[in-house]
Simulated scan of single mutants.
Amino acid sequence: MIATNWAMRQLAGPDPLALADPEAVTPADREVLASGWRTEPSGANVLADLRAGYHGPAARSGDLTGYEAAVNGRGVADQDILAEGKARERELLVRAISYAKQALVEARELPDRDQLTAVVSLSMSGDDVPLPTAKVTYYVQRDDERPYLRDVEGYAFESMLVFDYAAATG
């Protein structure tokens, strides 16, 4: 499954996962991926390195999806991107998609991997001189919980890409 909103289709074209480039994953994100995925006793699936730095509410029954999205959510580093304008936006998008896709590929040992979902969002900061910012998160779509996202087309102020394990590894 791959879902995009209009804004993402304008940025990434018809096949956003084709933009993924393993070389675009930053060293810091490679460290996160090297720490691997783990399934907690609650059943939540988290990246171990991100879980170690998480200080929010614990997982609770009925909202494992929200917990996973909170733990696994990460802003995409852009301090080293020297390009400006649309070129900066494109480089940041490639970096975000590359990290998201690689994380799902690395989830091959998770029992819930087939429901593992990545969300890549790109929006403009609220600064006086807006800059593109990107965020990536992961969660398992569970039938017995409210969806984390409903309709990606409903996100009018950011570019949205949502894809699952099968799309990342297929």
Rank of each mutant, 00 (worst) to 15 (best):
A59P: 03
T117F: 00
D15R: 09
S98L: 04
L47V: 13
A167G: 02
S35R: 15
L11V: 13
L116E: 09
Q10N: 11
Y54M: 05
L149N: 03
G170T: 12
G36I: 05
L17Y: 05
Q10L: 10
Q79R: 12
Q10C: 04
A168K: 06
T133K: 12
Y148G: 10
R38A: 14
M160T: 10
S159P: 01
D144K: 03
G126I: 05
G170C: 13
A69K: 04
T117W: 00
G154P: 11
D21N: 15
I81S: 08
L64M: 05
V140L: 04
A18T: 03
D164I: 02
L93Q: 07
G85W: 08
T137N: 13
D127M: 08
R90N: 06
L131T: 14
V71E: 11
A12M: 05
V76N: 11
N72R: 01
E23T: 09
V76A: 13
V119I: 14
M8P: 01
L104D: 12
A24P: 06
L50P: 03
V32H: 02
R74M: 09
A52G: 08
A118P: 00
D143P: 03
G56H: 03
V140I: 11
L33I: 12
A28E: 14
E40G: 02
G13V: 06
A100S: 02
A34N: 03
T4Y: 01
A59G: 07
D49H: 15
A134L: 03
L116D: 10
A52R: 15
L131M: 13
A12D: 08
P27D: 09
T137S: 07
V120M: 02
F163L: 12
L104S: 11
D112W: 05
P27H: 01
D29Y: 01
R30W: 00
D112M: 12
R150V: 14
Y165A: 04
P132K: 09
L110E: 07
R90F: 09
M8Y: 02
V136M: 09
G73Q: 11
V94N: 07
P130W: 02
G73A: 14
R95P: 01
S125Q: 11
D112Y: 03
Q79I: 14
I2N: 08
L17W: 02
T137M: 11
V120R: 02
G13D: 09
A96T: 03
R60L: 09
A83N: 05
P111F: 14
P130V: 10
E68A: 08
I2P: 02
D151I: 06
L161E: 07
Y139R: 00
A103T: 08
F157S: 13
A20F: 01
G126Q: 06
T39S: 10
Q115T: 15
V32N: 02
D29R: 05
M160N: 04
V152A: 15
R60K: 14
P16H: 05
V136E: 08
I81V: 15
P111W: 12
R150G: 06
G36H: 04
T137C: 09
L122F: 08
F157I: 06
V94E: 13
D21L: 08
P57D: 15
G36R: 03
E153Y: 04
A96W: 00
T4W: 02
V105H: 05
E89Y: 07
A12Y: 01
A52K: 15
L19Y: 01
